[in-house]
Design a protein around this nucleic acid. Sequence first.
DNA 1: TGGTTTTGTGAATTGTAATTCACAATATTG
DNA 2: CAATATTGTGAATTACAATTCACAAAACCA
Lengths: 216, 216
Amino acid sequence: MNELVYVVDDDTDLRESITEILSEEGFAVRSFAGAETALAGFDTAIPQIAIVDYMMPGMDGMTLIFMIKKKYPRLKVIMITAFSTVENAVAAMKGGADDYLPKPFKKNDLLTAVRRNLEEIRFEQEIEGPGMDEILACLANQIRRQILKALHTHGKMRFMDITRDLGATDHTKVNFHLKNLKIHKLISQDRDKLYTLSSQGKKMIEYLSLLSKKLQ
Amino acid sequence: MNELVYVVDDDTDLRESITEILSEEGFAVRSFAGAETALAGFDTAIPQIAIVDYMMPGMDGMTLIFMIKKKYPRLKVIMITAFSTVENAVAAMKGGADDYLPKPFKKNDLLTAVRRNLEEIRFEQEIEGPGMDEILACLANQIRRQILKALHTHGKMRFMDITRDLGATDHTKVNFHLKNLKIHKLISQDRDKLYTLSSQGKKMIEYLSLLSKKLQ
DNA sequence: TGGTTTTGTGAATTGTAATTCACAATATTG
DNA sequence: CAATATTGTGAATTACAATTCACAAAACCA
């Protein structure tokens, strides 16, 4: 369950040193002496982060990055290189590297870079996550928020109680939104047909309040 | 600008005592000896909270509540009564009271009740507020969230940089969403046409991250 | 039991958001 | 300067959300 990091460098000593540093910190590490074997590795396990040397015999680092990123765009690549110049760094970043570390680097520089990129991955997953769309779309509707609020204040409620509480004229309209909320698991219905907020729904209503406070 | 509280009770001493307690705490207070005069008061100023005695000569407290709530459903009513029983309390709440305070009550009981109901009002306004719809609808879209994220990580960005960052094939599509974000003031554009997160946008992105963590 | 309220479904319609397309003004660059 | 990339606009289309309508099973009640 640990984060998996690939290390791709033809320098065996450096490779082992990096592996040791990362392993110590609890990362799972697989190291490869060349781009080709690294690519082959993707068939068995896909890492969150790849640390790739710029210059390698055979396929070079930039080409490897290109191939990795094409298939796994969310994966973060840290490029390491002995011949570090501004232009080179810029080129690497343009070519798909997410970070850039000139050799030699300190243990801490490496760890910082790895952690920063892992954090970045988490962040991206969070705000891009597939569930987000639906949940937010579900909430982007006043009636549904009103339903949540009513359930929040009154606890368990029956269908028609909710309908009346909202002052809705058409019960099927309310039903539509109730169904929607149910699908997204923000509310639930027990055997007696009583509606209640789910734990997610409770959280949502807290955060809605938080949100509007933030937006003042 | 202070919160306005109505006190409706035929007992002059109690009325004055309540008025004093609330005034000390910074609330604006208007007191009425009867339901009829209280209703007349609504023509000049509408309170956030009404403290209503159960038993009064002329129109009784429950009837007053009914009439107030019919016209101002968001207004909170605290019922106070000397003849307090469970049934009575339940009936009062069913009849539209939002809170119920047996006489005699301590200064603190009163203040707590008032504050709790004010908090409730704020909460309701927050999650029903008109701006909420738009903001949430704006956020209920992956592309727009991706744009926010990109701006968050890269700071100022040009139009085509954003487009490429998202891997979008159609730049007009991105433009559409940029415009949308601009309208809702989550991003802004400076003289050099560079896009940046607005302060609201920054808050939003923090909030989104927070939200998704909580929804795990 | 028979009428009424509650709770619900599914199809048709309306309304709104999102996408695509055709086009263009404004930088930027060689 | 000419060519190209950038940054846009507005209309047409498409996709999807929301509402309304007609209908009905189940529960409730007198």
